[in-house]
Amino acid sequence: MYDLEFIVGHLHYWLFIVLMMTGFYIVVSRGNLVKKIVGLNIFQTSVFMFYISMGKVDGGTAPIFPVDMKIDPATVYSNPVPHVLILTAIVVGVATTALGLALIVRIREDFGTIEEEEILKIKRKITAEENRDHGAGMGGSA
């Protein structure tokens, strides 16, 4: 089962998985917020690839009927549904990226940095101040 034919025959799945994991790894490992969004984008794009490759039929052509609607029954068409779905998903991806970048701009304005480490430091400082002001005598941490 794990022969060359299997590996080559599922090439588009391997590419999808490599791309997906690359994106996911960037989201998890990078501290720079812009890089995180780029990683998220790659992660989403891999799913677009997955859907589009899924709709391909061997020897199939673009699913467009001729103008005179005389359809040759021997013609094989690719499945257009996954492509249409992915148009919607691309719009969602663009909206997510735009919103993420807008949030980064606001974070830069308020925190003065877009590095996760430094943001965490600032947040820890705020928490420590809150603990000093409000936590005393409550026996807990904010």
Binding site: K36, Q44, V47, A89, V92, I107, D110, K123, I126
Partner: peptide, 29 residues
């Protein structure tokens, strides 16, 4: 101002969740 980073964290995790969901639907399809 921590609302911004909370929203950003949620955006990253929520998008990963939603993308996993679409992959699942893709497999079903």
């Amino acid at each position: 101002k921590r609302a911004l980073t909370s929203a950003f964290d949620y955006l990253v995790m929520g998008t990963i969740g939603a993308t996993f969901f679409v992959i699942g639907i893709g497999f079903l399809y």
